[in-house]
């Protein structure tokens, strides 16, 4: 809890009548406190191999873990995902990067599969 600091503020909900049929009536006041937290760094990285430097660009926006948890996907499917990341989300992956990254993703994806 040392990374969760709660700063009390005087915001109190005075109990008012509630009329939703599905609700239980609530009479206790609800206090809202400011929140300050730290999120884990999300440092999951990609396994080594040719193309891992290009894959590093993916880490700008997300950690590697979800990529590693994908089901078995073809090279064509990976190329589709990579191009979506470029066109829809602005990933700074160049035309020259695409084939290298596609081959890398297809390889590590196959190697990550477990029963």
């Amino acid at each position: 809890m040392n990374h969760v600091r709660m700063l009390c503020l005087a915001l109190v909900l005075l109990a008012l009548g509630m009329d939703m049929a599905s609700a239980q009536e609530r009479t206790a006041p609800m206090a809202i406190h400011s929140v300050s937290v730290q999120l884990p760094a999300g440092l999951a990285e990609f396994p080594p191999g040719p193309g891992v430097d290009v894959a590093g660009k993916c880490l700008i926006c997300h950690s590697a873990d979800m990529v590693l948890k994908q089901p078995l996907m073809s090279e064509a499917a990976w190329k589709g995902v990579i191009n979506k990341m470029r066109s829809a989300y602005g990933a700074p992956i160049t035309d020259d990067d695409v084939n290298v990254l596609t081959a890398y993703m297809a390889r590590i994806n196959a190697e990550q599969q477990t029963p």
Partner: peptide
């Protein structure tokens, strides 16, 4: 219960108890 279904369990996230980690950043 599906292929490539191994997941870490995590207690690292603020205001959260034990959860199944799908992605650290941004969190899933």
């Amino acid at each position: 219960p599906f292929a490539n279904g191994d997941r870490d369990l995590t207690n690292e996230f603020p205001q959260k108890g034990q959860m199944i980690l799908l992605r650290g950043r941004p969190p899933l």
